[in-house]
């Protein structure tokens, strides 16, 4: 809001309605040294630009080699996730599709302070960044945000709450449900749970997660997008490889079911407090 007035219509402008055009155009501007910040109206509509992101943005530094021509200035922002009534095409969380693409950085903030710091870091970063914004938090999350510029580190998870018995790993909106479930579980089971926000989904902070699970011996991964080949699969596989001898229970994945987001079923599809609480109970009682 107001950016076009403040900075001019040459720097803040409408494009034709074409996602492949938007991302391709932004890559071209980045290739000539600019810092384009492209927006896809909903993450659900990023797929027409998939070729440009996967085959071009992600690979151009690699293929250009010693010529050092790259699209590192590029940031593609897109609203993601459930909003209560978004159905099939206003609810999706496509982050795991991008975590399979070396060359892209994938970032999901959880709050206004995080959003600003991570977005400024993404713009400063010399790699292309897919920046997914949980849209249900656009108006819901309110906190004091510094007006001056600051950055938060990419590829660095944040331990939101220390604990000794279970590690709960998530990012974006589900973190709030995780906090509520943890409070109930700690009260009911007399345990302490460590809660970690991944923040950057790829390349992700493997050392922080592994050191936490090597301490607690139990791990749960929570995300909104479907469970099959989701971020949880990669995190769980990395944990079993890097913390095998410390694991006291199978790694749990609490995620969207392997289906689409039918309008009337959203609250049964998105990981809620009950399912997260139940997963904690499972690993504690295993």
């Amino acid at each position: 809001m107001g950016l076009a007035n403040d900075f001019g219509s040459e720097r803040v402008f409408n494009t034709p309605l074409s996602e492949q055009g938007i991302v391709g155009f932004a890559i071209g501007a980045a290739l000539e040294g600019m810092k384009p910040i492209a927006e896809i109206q909903f993450a659900d509509y990023v797929y027409p630009a998939f070729d440009q992101l996967v085959n071009e943005a992600a690979k151009v530094r690699y293929r250009a080699g010693a010529t050092d021509m790259h699209a590192g200035g590029l940031v593609v922002r897109m609203p993601m996730g459930g909003v209560g009534h978004g159905a099939l095409y206003h609810s999706q969380s496509p982050e795991s599709l991008f975590t399979h693409i070396p060359g892209l950085r994938v970032v999901v903030p959880r709050s206004p302070i995080q959003a600003k710091g991570l977005l400024l870091a993404s713009i400063a970063c010399n790699d292309p960044v897919v920046f997914l914004e949980p849209k249900i938090l656009y108006r819901a999350a309110v906190e004091q945000v510094p007006t001056e510029a600051y950055t938060l580190p990419l590829s660095k998870a944040e331990v939101l709450k220390e604990g000794n018995d279970v590690t709960l790993i998530s990012y974006g909106t589900p973190l709030y449900n995780c906090s509520t479930a943890i409070a109930a579980a700690e009260r009911d089971f007399g345990i302490s749970v460590e809660l970690i926000d991944l923040r950057t989904i790829y390349p992700w902070d493997r050392p922080t997660i592994l050191s936490s699970v090597n301490k607690t011996g139990r791990a749960i991964v929570v995300h909104e997008s479907m469970i099959n080949s989701g971020v949880g699969a990669e995190v769980a596989a990395t944990i079993q490889e890097g913390a095998f001898l410390r694991l006291e229970a199978p790694v749990q994945r609490v995620a969207g079911w392997s289906t689409h987001m039918g309008l009337m079923y959203e609250k049964f599809n998105i990981p809620d407090v009950v399912r997260i609480y139940d997963a904690i109970r499972k690993v504690v009682n295993y």
Binding site: G21, G24, I27, G28, L31, E32, D51, A64, M69
Partner: peptide
């Protein structure tokens, strides 16, 4: 490809360079 000659490195996917050219031209204009 050659940075010295201002030619971006060729990639196999067809036509992907056409919107790049539009965006690069906008960058040059700015």
């Amino acid at each position: 490809g050659s940075s010295r000659l201002h030619i971006h490195t060729i990639s196999s996917p067809l036509a992907t360079q056409i919107p790049h050219a539009a965006g690069a031209a906008y960058a040059l204009k700015m």
